[in-house]
């Protein structure tokens, strides 16, 4: 077994373990911390897949932005929302488990039958920012524009929901 493979298995196990932690924690803060670990493991995996730039973005956006935002909200609304009971309803987990198992089995079955392809170790030129940036801002400029509209919607929406309406102020 090559070093790469051992590394992958270790990081992958950590990733799955932290994912289980997110789902099963009784306390939301713990979930958030597990999530942080999970995001970090994924960033490592991105590097192994020649996506260095995305790995950096992953850390910045997810770990640095999203998890912090979630932690912020947990602080804001306190521990009241946290579910102290088992947290599972009677039939949904079983149904979910069944469906999830089926999904997983289906995907694995499909994936394992994939023909082996010769992989280019230098695929995507290592995903360096310049290459990705050029690609993004030339052919895919439309996507960037749409993402701008999307962020505008999110901005407006957060504003609309978070700000007190004038009527209430008065």
């Amino acid at each position: 077994m090559s070093f790469e493979m051992i590394f992958f298995i270790l990081v992958g196990a950590l990733s799955v373990g932290s994912a289980v932690g997110v789902v099963s924690s009784k306390v939301a803060v713990h979930s958030a911390l597990f999530l942080l670990v999970h995001f970090a493991t994924l960033a490592i995996l991105y590097v192994t897949l020649n996506a260095q730039f995305l790995a950096a973005v992953q850390v910045i956006v997810y770990a640095g932005g999203i998890v912090i935002l979630i932690l912020f909200v947990i602080m804001l609304i306190g521990s009241a929302p946290l579910d102290t009971r088992a947290g599972y309803r009677n039939w949904v987990p079983y149904a979910g488990l069944g469906l999830g198992g089926a999904l997983l089995a289906g995907i694995s079955w499909n994936v394992l039958r994939m023909p082996a392809v010769a992989l280019n170790p230098d695929a995507n030129q290592g995903g360096v920012p310049v290459v990705l940036g050029l690609h993004l801002y030339s052919q895919n400029i439309l996507l960037v524009e749409l993402a701008a509209v999307l962020l505008l919607v999110a901005l407006l929406g957060a504003l609309l929901l978070a700000r007190r309406p004038k009527a209430e102020e008065a």
Partner: peptide, 22 residues
Amino acid sequence: ILSAIIFVIGAAGVLGRRNALI
């Protein structure tokens, strides 16, 4: 397969957990 496992764990969490934040 790794990502499928994570996806299914996430999906199970959505269906199984009651805490909206989680």
